[in-house]
Design a protein around this nucleic acid. Structure first.
Ligand SMILES: [Zn+2]
Ligand SMILES: [Zn+2]
Ligand SMILES: [Zn+2]
Ligand SMILES: [Zn+2]
Lengths: 165, 165
DNA sequence: TGTTTAATGATAATTAATATCAAATGATAA
DNA sequence: TTATCATTTGATATTAATTATCATTAAACA
């Protein structure tokens, strides 16, 4: 954690920015909620817990800065809100997402999976890929399991249930 | 074109909606600009040319309705605006996009390309995929060509240019 | 220490999208 | 046709996310 912050500090310095206390507090919130997909507002509320004097504008500015430096990626899942996602250290590309249309959960896929597709696109469309966004919308494993359980319960209560036939 | 509108009309009726003159005008604008990626505001301005009495709210409502019926897909390329894209008739999935980070052009990929990836995701992550969004960010072929031309010109003007060594 | 520059916080302004509601339209049945 | 009822519309108010502004503060400098 500390070493991660140190490296981010160096990245900022490399682009002649400072890691101010407000920026550090913001980065810490992102690190502590690495698996979440927080909006600027979400980050603001969490940062305020440790640094109550921080302003919303500063959070927006910090997130913008981190995006510019490719420390975080900005993504929009279709609700009108931008969300901010720490990039895996050293990752060449942004990771992928599974958005559940039933429960709203957002799961991550860290594996690349797109290598072949990107080779085709670069060649056939003569397009130099710098980054990508890949999001699947569907039903997550938790919701699928829940459905199976419910169906089970139904059949126990009513063994002659023949909806399957 | 007319037959396409007829089929959309039937889709609306099937869901017990009417194809009102306002809705038809909106659909026509989408058909006439099929390769563009119009925002609600863009659509509004274009529709007003043929149906000046239409209100912005109606355009938003129509686009929402068409999205619900999967006649159009709503997509966001990272500027804060939703854009609306006619789905290919009969297409199972939304097509992919190439967004140029230099000139802003948005090109389309109609080929699926994701079949294998989706099979892996469905199995390994136990996720039932219903739809997807795939966007590549990079440099389009036009910008690449332009760069090549510029470099050429440079070398003609200054044959001893040795920046390549 | 004074001087310059960068960063911050409060708040105003902008913008996209949604909500509200009275009026218009359209289909339906007497 | 006319009365009736639900749907749709247009104008406008409202909400919500983001950006802009600007005076103040903090940091680097020399
Ligand atoms: Zn789920
Ligand atoms: Zn993520
Ligand atoms: Zn380009
Ligand atoms: Zn498209």
């Amino acid at each position: 954690m500390e070493s991660r912050i140190d490296r981010i500090k160096k990245q900022l310095h490399g682009a002649s920015y400072k890691l101010t206390p407000q920026r550090e507090a913001t980065v810490r919130v992102l690190l502590e909620n690495e698996e979440d997909h927080l909006s600027a507002e979400d980050v603001y509320l969490l940062v305020k817990e440790k640094a109550p004097e921080i302003g919303l504008a500063t959070v927006y500015r910090t997130l913008e800065l981190l995006t510019e430096l490719k420390i975080v990626d900005k993504i929009n899942f279709g609700d009108g809100v931008s969300r901010y996602d720490l990039r895996q250290e050293g990752a060449a590309h942004f990771h992928h997402h599974l958005v559940c249309i039933e429960c709203g959960a957002v799961d991550e896929i860290q594996e690349d999976l797109l290598e072949d597709v990107e080779a085709v696109v670069e060649k056939r469309w003569n397009f130099q890929i710098k980054d990508h966004r890949l999001t699947f919308h569907g039903i997550c494993w938790r919701c699928t399991e829940k459905h199976a359980e419910e169906k089970n319960k139904e059949n126990v209560n009513n063994p002659n249930n023949n909806e399957d036939f």
